[in-house]
Computed example of a mutant assay.
Amino acid sequence: MSALTSIFRVQNVFVGTTADNLRVHINAELRIEDSERDVETVEHGHVNSPVTLSMTHSTYKGRKNIERNLESSGAGLEDVARVVTPAPGYTLAEVRELARIGTKWHLNTGRAGCAHMDLPKDTSYDARKGITCPETGYKYGAAWLTEELPSDVYDRFKELASKGEIHPHED
Protein backbone atom coordinates (compact mmCIF):
# COMPACT_ATOMS: atom_id res chain seq x y z
CA MET A 1 0.00 0.00 0.00
CA SER A 2 1.30 3.47 -0.79
CA ALA A 3 0.23 6.96 0.21
CA LEU A 4 0.90 10.34 -1.34
CA THR A 5 2.28 13.03 0.91
CA SER A 6 2.34 16.59 -0.36
CA ILE A 7 5.47 18.36 0.81
CA PHE A 8 4.94 21.63 -1.06
CA ARG A 9 1.86 23.07 -2.75
CA VAL A 10 0.80 26.44 -4.14
CA GLN A 11 -2.41 27.13 -6.00
CA ASN A 12 -3.41 29.90 -8.36
CA VAL A 13 -0.14 31.84 -8.18
CA PHE A 14 -0.18 34.75 -10.63
CA VAL A 15 3.03 34.69 -12.73
CA GLY A 16 2.27 37.36 -15.35
CA THR A 17 0.39 38.43 -18.47
CA THR A 18 0.79 37.51 -22.12
CA ALA A 19 1.09 39.92 -25.05
CA ASP A 20 -2.66 39.55 -25.65
CA ASN A 21 -3.30 40.55 -22.01
CA LEU A 22 -4.21 37.12 -20.63
CA ARG A 23 -3.42 36.53 -16.94
CA VAL A 24 -1.42 33.34 -16.33
CA HIS A 25 -1.53 31.46 -13.02
CA ILE A 26 0.14 28.23 -11.92
CA ASN A 27 -0.63 25.40 -9.55
CA ALA A 28 2.47 23.58 -8.34
CA GLU A 29 3.12 20.63 -6.09
CA LEU A 30 5.97 18.45 -4.91
CA ARG A 31 4.87 15.17 -3.35
CA ILE A 32 6.35 11.91 -2.15
CA GLU A 33 4.78 8.54 -2.75
CA ASP A 34 5.52 6.60 0.41
CA SER A 35 5.80 3.08 -0.92
CA GLU A 36 6.71 -0.27 0.54
CA ARG A 37 8.49 -1.21 -2.67
CA ASP A 38 11.16 0.37 -4.82
CA VAL A 39 10.28 1.90 -8.18
CA GLU A 40 12.35 1.61 -11.34
CA THR A 41 14.14 4.68 -12.66
CA VAL A 42 14.66 5.72 -16.29
CA GLU A 43 18.26 4.50 -15.82
CA HIS A 44 16.89 1.07 -14.63
CA GLY A 45 18.04 1.58 -11.07
CA HIS A 46 15.63 1.51 -8.15
CA VAL A 47 14.56 4.16 -5.64
CA ASN A 48 12.07 4.29 -2.82
CA SER A 49 9.65 7.17 -2.23
CA PRO A 50 10.68 9.45 -5.13
CA VAL A 51 9.59 13.09 -5.28
CA THR A 52 7.06 13.96 -8.01
CA LEU A 53 6.84 17.47 -9.44
CA SER A 54 3.47 18.58 -10.78
CA MET A 55 2.76 21.93 -12.43
CA THR A 56 -0.32 23.12 -14.31
CA HIS A 57 -1.58 26.49 -15.49
CA SER A 58 -4.81 28.45 -15.75
CA THR A 59 -5.09 31.41 -18.11
CA TYR A 60 -7.78 34.07 -17.65
CA LYS A 61 -9.03 37.06 -19.60
CA GLY A 62 -9.98 40.09 -17.54
CA ARG A 63 -9.10 40.95 -13.96
CA LYS A 64 -11.11 38.30 -12.11
CA ASN A 65 -10.25 34.62 -11.81
CA ILE A 66 -13.76 33.38 -12.40
CA GLU A 67 -14.75 30.42 -14.48
CA ARG A 68 -16.42 32.44 -17.25
CA ASN A 69 -13.07 34.23 -17.77
CA LEU A 70 -11.07 30.99 -18.07
CA GLU A 71 -9.34 30.78 -21.46
CA SER A 72 -7.27 27.61 -20.98
CA SER A 73 -5.87 25.32 -18.33
CA GLY A 74 -3.89 22.13 -18.03
CA ALA A 75 -0.43 20.64 -17.95
CA GLY A 76 0.74 22.20 -21.23
CA LEU A 77 2.76 25.18 -20.04
CA GLU A 78 2.92 27.13 -23.30
CA ASP A 79 0.96 30.02 -21.75
CA VAL A 80 3.50 30.33 -18.93
CA ALA A 81 6.25 30.55 -21.56
CA ARG A 82 4.21 33.25 -23.41
CA VAL A 83 4.27 35.66 -20.45
CA VAL A 84 5.75 39.03 -21.49
CA THR A 85 4.97 41.03 -18.36
CA PRO A 86 5.93 39.21 -15.16
CA ALA A 87 3.80 39.46 -12.03
CA PRO A 88 5.10 41.39 -9.01
CA GLY A 89 7.89 39.40 -7.38
CA TYR A 90 9.05 37.78 -10.64
CA THR A 91 11.46 38.71 -13.39
CA LEU A 92 10.76 37.58 -16.94
CA ALA A 93 13.78 35.27 -16.76
CA GLU A 94 12.34 33.61 -13.63
CA VAL A 95 8.95 33.02 -15.30
CA ARG A 96 10.71 31.47 -18.30
CA GLU A 97 12.80 29.29 -15.99
CA LEU A 98 9.66 28.16 -14.16
CA ALA A 99 8.09 27.21 -17.52
CA ARG A 100 11.23 25.25 -18.49
CA ILE A 101 11.33 23.37 -15.19
CA GLY A 102 7.63 22.56 -15.36
CA THR A 103 7.84 21.40 -18.97
CA LYS A 104 10.87 19.17 -18.33
CA TRP A 105 9.92 17.73 -14.94
CA HIS A 106 6.08 17.62 -14.79
CA LEU A 107 5.07 14.16 -13.56
CA ASN A 108 8.67 12.93 -13.54
CA THR A 109 7.58 9.66 -11.87
CA GLY A 110 5.44 8.68 -14.85
CA ARG A 111 7.85 8.26 -17.76
CA ALA A 112 6.96 5.63 -20.36
CA GLY A 113 10.45 5.52 -21.89
CA CYS A 114 13.89 4.99 -20.41
CA ALA A 115 17.02 7.11 -20.76
CA HIS A 116 18.57 4.73 -23.32
CA MET A 117 15.79 4.89 -25.91
CA ASP A 118 16.12 6.92 -29.07
CA LEU A 119 12.58 8.32 -29.13
CA PRO A 120 11.02 10.09 -32.11
CA LYS A 121 9.76 13.68 -31.75
CA ASP A 122 6.22 12.36 -32.26
CA THR A 123 5.04 11.73 -28.69
CA SER A 124 2.07 9.54 -29.61
CA TYR A 125 2.04 6.00 -28.28
CA ASP A 126 1.61 4.61 -31.82
CA ALA A 127 4.87 6.26 -32.90
CA ARG A 128 6.77 4.84 -29.91
CA LYS A 129 5.12 1.52 -29.00
CA GLY A 130 7.61 -0.83 -30.63
CA ILE A 131 10.74 0.77 -29.20
CA THR A 132 12.85 -1.26 -26.78
CA CYS A 133 15.79 -0.35 -24.57
CA PRO A 134 19.07 -1.45 -26.20
CA GLU A 135 20.55 -2.19 -22.74
CA THR A 136 17.76 -4.09 -20.97
CA GLY A 137 15.05 -4.91 -23.51
CA TYR A 138 12.48 -2.80 -21.59
CA LYS A 139 9.55 -2.05 -23.92
CA TYR A 140 8.27 1.51 -24.20
CA GLY A 141 5.18 1.96 -22.04
CA ALA A 142 5.53 -1.35 -20.16
CA ALA A 143 5.72 0.51 -16.80
CA TRP A 144 5.89 3.99 -15.33
CA LEU A 145 9.54 4.83 -14.78
CA THR A 146 10.89 7.54 -12.47
CA GLU A 147 13.24 10.29 -13.56
CA GLU A 148 14.71 11.36 -10.23
CA LEU A 149 14.29 15.05 -9.50
CA PRO A 150 17.72 16.61 -8.85
CA SER A 151 17.96 18.46 -5.52
CA ASP A 152 18.94 21.73 -7.21
CA VAL A 153 15.81 21.57 -9.42
CA TYR A 154 13.69 20.74 -6.36
CA ASP A 155 15.04 23.76 -4.46
CA ARG A 156 14.79 26.17 -7.38
CA PHE A 157 11.25 25.06 -8.26
CA LYS A 158 10.09 25.64 -4.68
CA GLU A 159 11.74 29.06 -4.64
CA LEU A 160 10.26 30.17 -7.96
CA ALA A 161 6.76 28.75 -7.47
CA SER A 162 6.34 30.44 -4.11
CA LYS A 163 7.46 33.94 -5.19
CA GLY A 164 4.21 35.16 -6.70
CA GLU A 165 0.95 36.40 -5.26
CA ILE A 166 -1.83 33.89 -4.70
CA HIS A 167 -5.09 34.96 -6.33
CA PRO A 168 -7.92 32.73 -5.16
CA HIS A 169 -10.80 31.86 -7.47
CA GLU A 170 -13.79 34.15 -7.06
CA ASP A 171 -17.43 33.11 -7.20
Results as ranks from 00 to 15, higher is better:
2 S>K: 04
3 A>Q: 11
4 L>C: 00
5 T>R: 12
8 F>M: 11
9 R>M: 05
10 V>M: 01
12 N>L: 00
14 F>S: 02
14 F>C: 03
15 V>Y: 10
16 G>V: 12
16 G>L: 07
18 T>P: 08
20 D>I: 02
21 N>S: 11
22 L>T: 05
22 L>D: 04
23 R>E: 00
31 R>V: 09
33 E>C: 11
34 D>Q: 12
35 S>Q: 12
35 S>F: 03
36 E>Y: 05
38 D>S: 14
38 D>E: 15
41 T>W: 00
43 E>K: 00
43 E>I: 00
45 G>P: 00
45 G>W: 00
47 V>M: 04
51 V>K: 09
52 T>V: 04
53 L>R: 03
55 M>R: 01
56 T>S: 15
57 H>R: 14
58 S>C: 02
58 S>T: 07
59 T>G: 00
63 R>V: 14
64 K>Q: 14
67 E>H: 08
68 R>E: 15
68 R>G: 11
69 N>C: 07
72 S>W: 04
73 S>N: 12
73 S>L: 05
73 S>F: 13
74 G>P: 12
74 G>D: 11
75 A>E: 11
75 A>T: 07
75 A>H: 10
75 A>M: 06
77 L>W: 12
78 E>S: 15
81 A>H: 07
82 R>L: 15
83 V>G: 05
83 V>A: 01
84 V>K: 10
88 P>Q: 10
88 P>T: 07
88 P>N: 08
89 G>W: 08
90 Y>I: 11
90 Y>M: 06
91 T>A: 02
92 L>H: 07
93 A>Q: 14
94 E>R: 03
94 E>S: 01
95 V>N: 09
98 L>E: 06
98 L>W: 07
99 A>M: 10
100 R>Q: 11
100 R>S: 08
100 R>W: 01
101 I>P: 01
102 G>N: 02
103 T>H: 05
103 T>Q: 05
105 W>S: 02
107 L>E: 12
110 G>H: 13
111 R>Y: 08
113 G>S: 14
113 G>E: 13
114 C>H: 01
115 A>G: 00
116 H>R: 04
119 L>D: 03
121 K>G: 02
121 K>H: 05
123 T>F: 05
123 T>D: 11
126 D>W: 04
130 G>Y: 12
131 I>K: 09
131 I>E: 11
131 I>A: 09
131 I>V: 13
133 C>K: 06
133 C>D: 13
134 P>Q: 07
137 G>Q: 08
138 Y>D: 03
139 K>I: 14
145 L>A: 08
147 E>R: 08
148 E>P: 15
148 E>W: 02
150 P>I: 12
153 V>W: 08
154 Y>R: 15
155 D>A: 15
158 K>E: 11
161 A>F: 09
161 A>L: 09
161 A>Y: 09
162 S>V: 01
163 K>M: 15
164 G>T: 06
165 E>D: 15
166 I>T: 15
166 I>K: 14
167 H>C: 10
171 D>M: 10
171 D>A: 13
